[in-house]
Amino acid sequence: MIEYTTTRHNPGVDPILHLWGWEIPLYLFLGGLVAGLMILSGYHILRSRWDRDQAQGHYVTAPLLSLALLSAGMLTLFLDLEHKLQVWRLYLTFRPASPMSWGSWILLFVYPALVASALLTLAASLPRLRQRLPVLARVSESLAGHNGAVHLIGFANVVLGAMLGIYTGVLLSALGARPLWNSALLGPLFLFSGLSTGAATLHLLSHLTPRAGEGSPGFSDALASVMVNWLRPPSAQDGSRKLEQADNSFLTIELALLALFFGGLMTSTLAHQTGARLLLTGPWAAPFWVFVVGSGILLPLLLQFLQAQRRIQSTWVPALLVLGGGLALRFILVGAGQASHWSVALP
């Protein structure tokens, strides 16, 4: 991408701007996902009065996974930059009015917070590494032994996660040249979508984390035995239900924010209405209703509700659907946003 000013006073915007391919939406998705994971694991650290023995399997791997995902996200962002060698310049200044500047500085703080949180859980997440590198183990133990440090790490993860999540939405809404993105609700929308995908990831991890003390399944067929593992109820009995409930509340809020987002656009100018119609009835309507609203929000809501009621088996399908819905939301909003235009409001 050519680094654009965000108004229409540059020649790349008219008549249509189609510069963002798959990189930006994927970055926004991964950023939101990491934000959600940070908030949830930070909250878990704050709540559980840190005790290594109590650490739940899927929470301890979350910071490491976040680091990997965020790095992947940063890579996509970097791939998207036109002037790749100039990227260090972002860190020479701080411009309060520029969302890109905010973003690059938030990301600078997110890494240490994630590393600290990963160190804290290292003992439980990678026991072998702990034996190989006693230095890391000592750091980890001294951190965990220090109540203040644990609280600080938890708090920093929650706050930075929230900032990161909102920033992924603000990045779009700051680009005033696109009426569809011209909504203050995009920040909270992406934050809650990030939270729901974060909870879904943790849920998925809880299904995939092997349960201790279980023999190999009695199936001779290799394919069947691998798949049967996926269908088992998650290892943590209580944590998974809490995650389902948390995920459902995030999804409900996300749905409400989507409704407000469209309500706001539809009561605004003709350009905003035309932008919103791109998603509601226009060329993005089918993927939007089917993948974002249908299979991304409503279906997992229903499935997780029934799972929480113990009416149906607990599976990883709703978690996968939520992740798919979050990805689709980013792709569709970025794609449709670039097609929305102010000039439709002209006579």
Binding site: T281, G282, P283, W284, A285, A286, W289, V290, G294
Partner: peptide, 13 residues
């Protein structure tokens, strides 16, 4: 009554 895009949503339902 509705266009091609909405017909896909109907298809899903």
């Amino acid at each position: 009554l509705f266009g091609d895009e909405i017909s896909l949503v109907v298809a899903f339902a």
